[in-house]
């Protein structure tokens, strides 16, 4: 049983961290572009993303299921009930959170460090270097927070992952199944492990934040 729990833990970590990285891949350029807009629509767009943070996970799961189902438009990819759909689903789910958090980080970087670099005589490349140096740890903090949202969600993992043993079973779906089986002890062990993971991630984020 412990090798199975170990597998579930490792799988959850890999899936959710990949999802977080994936979300960063599109959120970073998007947010950077958004920051540079000098128009009122910027506030509306970021307002929408703020609202979407509360997106129900089962809704994201359902939409993805319909997309990736064999009869759906992306069915030919044959990705349903694989870890890859969970990765895609979780990355979509956390994107509004990532963008909202990055927006804060980037606004500050843009308003403060970009200008500062220019006042001190930096060319564009030097200014970018300076910004990266200043925000890299903030981006890391953003990813940790988003990661903990991804690893703690159930809806997407259950609907598009299918909770397949040894393949798409992650912390949350395993907990749901153990409850279904009436095996509360295993459910609690898994729940505590998940809690420990999330707690250490959040604590790490806090420590990094205090240091900078």
């Amino acid at each position: 049983m412990y090798t199975e729990i170990y597998g579930i833990a490792l799988r959850s970590l890999l899936i959710s961290s990949t999802a977080t990285l994936l979300a960063l891949v599109w959120s970073i350029p998007f947010t950077a572009k958004l920051i540079s807009i000098r128009h009122r629509s910027k506030d509306i767009i970021i307002g929408i993303f703020n609202t979407l943070i509360g997106l129900p996970t089962v809704l994201v799961g359902l939409v993805l299921y319909l997309l990736f189902s064999y009869s759906g438009p992306l069915g030919f990819l044959e990705l349903l009930y694989t870890p890859y759909t969970i990765i895609i689903g979780e990355s979509i789910l956390i994107t509004p959170l990532v963008i909202s958090l990055l927006y804060e980080v980037f606004s500050r970087a843009y308003n403060e460090y970009w200008e500062l670099a220019l006042t001190l005589g930096a060319d564009k490349l030097q200014a970018y270097k300076l910004i990266i140096r200043e925000v890299i740890s903030d981006i890391f903090v953003v990813s940790l927070i988003s990661f903990s949202r991804a690893i703690g969600e159930l809806g997407v993992a259950l609907i598009v992952g299918g909770n397949i043993k040894g393949y798409t079973r992650v912390f949350t779906t395993a907990i749901a199944l153990e409850i279904e089986k009436g095996e509360f002890e295993t459910a609690i062990i898994l729940g505590l492990l998940l809690f420990i993971v999330v707690l250490s991630v959040i604590l790490t984020a806090r420590i990094i934040k205090r240091r900078v």
């Binding site: 403060e112 460090y113 200008e115 500062l116 220019l118 006042t119 001190l120 005589g121 930096a122 060319d123 030097q126 300076l130 140096r133 200043e134 900078v212």
Partner: peptide, 30 residues
């Protein structure tokens, strides 16, 4: 031209690192 001008923000924004790192930044990039 911009390197002939220096503007100091009202809010004192400092870079990560030591005070010395901050003071030499503009010189290093020059």
């Amino acid at each position: 031209f911009r390197r002939k001008i220096v503007y100091v923000h009202e809010k004192p924004i400092l870079l990560r690192g030591s005070v010395l790192d901050n003071i030499i930044y503009g010189l290093i990039i020059r």
